[in-house]
Design a protein around this nucleic acid. Structure first.
Lengths: 204, 204
DNA sequence: GCACTGATGACAGTCACTGACATCGGTGCT
DNA sequence: AGCACCGATGTCAGTGACTGTCATCAGTGC
């Protein structure tokens, strides 16, 4: 991070090596800036590459496609969910495990990104359908990973799938409320509220 | 339908008008065939257009993009869900309304497509990530429509959102089981099973 | 010195998608 | 009949995302 900032401000000195290091980080940052300034569609990959002082080809060496630059490093969240489920004591009900996973996820999210950065990112994503599609794919992968973690604990396939979907729905809903304007409450607190809401819905 | 088949078999006679009618249906059918034969990526829009006896440009007049040709006519499902919620008697709990919406959706789905056609379509979609993304976007739109319908009945925003997500998760899960090989049970029956599973999960 | 590696550049190519304009049967009006 | 207009389609020239392939050359180890 500090390297990127310094080189971006002071310029890169060729004596330091053949190429300025940190190309991937520069690309990520350039993309975020340009998407925020002009929007996703109005930004070309060539624009991003130019701002990051590399070629377009290099962009595609680091990111599978133009959208992916906004979605790297979410393995952390998945790991948090899965580990929380796998490491919980034996014999606990599914609902308790979902709670544990959600709390672990909230903790990871708040460590990884602050609320303001999360807002900036969501503003970009919500302005573009293609980006929403990618986010939904990532969320579904998360849900399936949770499903797999439940199945590993012996939960029946259908229940495991539903547990994954419900957990992710709860997390997304709480997340949306967390980044609302003027929202000051903690993500964990909102998650507990959401959990109560789910229970009140499924009780006829 | 009969028009399409007849013209496809017998060829089109120019005396019948300037252009062979039913271009959109021909495009849909050509796309399904080619995606099933070669896969989505290995099929170009030019291929589809050629088989449907139109130009590539005409394809894009009917479908916003290459993926969309597999996802038209989903409004019916959404309408079924929303109407079922809107038209239910006053004072019923959310869980009962979800049941009603799901049953209406199941009925619509079984009328629109048979199980075999649903299987063929899912086989194509599950073989390609980009198509999965589009399907997830459609499902999320469905969930949001359900959310809106619940809000219109006075359900609080957060609960309404969760209700939409849970309803769609239940429908997707039951649908997946419905199209499993050798599955003979009815979609409605599977939905009721899934509903019981959700309740058992959310009960600690 | 010297071979080798790994990150990058250079460049040509494919394909999804778009805008602008041309074409010409059908339809209705006079 | 003649004529003007409409609407579905064709034609064509783009732009931009993404890919395959080969060249380059500082650093590294021997």
């Amino acid at each position: 991070m500090s390297v990127t900032v310094i080189s971006a401000i002071a310029g890169y000195d060729r004596r330091m090596g053949r190429w300025e290091p940190g190309a991937q980080d520069r690309l990520r940052q350039a993309a975020m800036e340009l998407f925020a300034e002009r929007g996703f569609e109005a930004t070309t990959v060539a624009d991003i590459a130019a701002r990051a002082r590399v070629t377009e080809r290099t962009f595609f060496r680091y990111f599978a496609d133009k959208r992916e630059v906004l979605f790297s490093g979410e393995d952390l969240l998945q790991t948090a969910f899965v580990d929380a489920i796998a490491q919980a004591p034996e014999g606990q009900p599914v609902w308790t495990l979902i709670h544990a996973a959600l709390d672990a996820g909230a903790k990871t999210l708040q460590e990884t990104r602050g609320r303001e950065q999360a807002r900036a990112r969501e503003a970009i994503i919500s302005a573009n359908e293609a980006l929403q599609e990618r986010e939904l794919l990532k969320l579904t992968r998360l849900a399936r990973a949770v499903t797999k973690a439940f199945q590993a604990r012996g939960v029946a396939p259908t229940q495991a799938r539903l547990a994954g979907d419900v957990a992710v729905a709860m997390f997304s809903t709480a997340f949306q409320r967390w980044i609302e304007p003027d929202q000051t409450r903690d993500l964990t607190e909102l998650l507990h509220e959401v959990a109560a809401d789910v229970q009140s819905i499924t009780t006829s």
